[in-house]
Amino acid sequence: MSNYLEGLFNLKGKTAAVIGGGGHLCGEMARAFGRAGVSVAVLDLRLSKAEDVAEQIKAEGGKALALEIDATDGESHKVNLAKIIEQFGQVDILINGAGINAPTPVLDIPKQEYLDIIDSHFGSTLIGSQIFGTHMLDNGKGSIINLSSASANPPLSKAFSYSAAKAAVLNITKNLAREWGQKGVRVNALRPGFFPTEWSQEHFIDEAREKAIHGHTPMARYGQPNELVGAVLWLASDAAGFVTGAEIAVDGGFSCMTI
């Protein structure tokens, strides 16, 4: 049985590029890839954060490379793709997980703020898929996993620009899956529920909001980053070979809750 499961979900020898890999959720994904025998390029605007995650992977016996990236800039993607290919040969898996947020009231959102937020999510996802996707299409294989959100649809209150950006991420995911369905490159979205960081707890979640979140979540709790790992490893593996254009919810039942 163990040999069967290992063969079904085997990722050994593959290479993953994790954009946003210095963060709360994508950092855990990067470490999981390392434990699964994947060579991991950890990319983040904050190089020190990427280096911390890469060192953690190496300390567990994995292979990792830390790189600084401006995920909204195509040239930055191209430069980093070349570095990854030089180090590991090719890229088999891409996580598009960059992004920022802000709790600005809707009537007060300045133009530059919503442009920056949309660019950080939708723009970076599109550019990453263009640059790394071209490489995968040339190889005839690959798995791209974009970070959607529980706020993609319906939108989350207090996160107006973020919600719109995540809706766009989901839309481009489905568009790319349709475009590349016969070309060996699968494109899917992971839809996390509430996995709050210290920042989001400070800026978005007060006692009343936490009560509302838990009341709308059948499991009545927040998620832990390691609870995303199973879905990510599955989407990256050949076990999900007929899965493309999907949005996989890992949200404790949040998306199925009404009253």
Rank of each mutant, 00 (worst) to 15 (best):
G62Q: 06
E68T: 01
A82F: 11
V79C: 07
K83G: 02
E86C: 11
A66E: 03
S76P: 09
A59K: 13
L81F: 14
A64S: 04
I85M: 14
A66R: 09
E68L: 02
E60I: 05
I69W: 04
K83P: 08
G61E: 08
D70K: 11
A64M: 06
E60N: 07
G62E: 00
E68Y: 05
A66N: 01
K83T: 04
L67W: 10
I57A: 07
I57T: 10
T72G: 10
A82I: 10
V79R: 14
K83H: 11
N80K: 00
G74S: 14
Q56T: 01
E75R: 11
K63Q: 13
H77P: 03
S76E: 03
E86N: 13
L65W: 02
G74F: 12
K63A: 02
N80H: 00
N80R: 03
I85L: 14
A66G: 04
E68M: 06
Q87S: 15
G74C: 14
A64P: 01
I84R: 04
I84Q: 07
G74E: 15
L65S: 01
D70A: 08
D73G: 11
I57M: 11
I84Y: 01
T72R: 07
V79L: 14
G62W: 00
I57N: 02
N80M: 04
E60C: 10
E86D: 15
G74P: 15
A64D: 00
V79E: 00
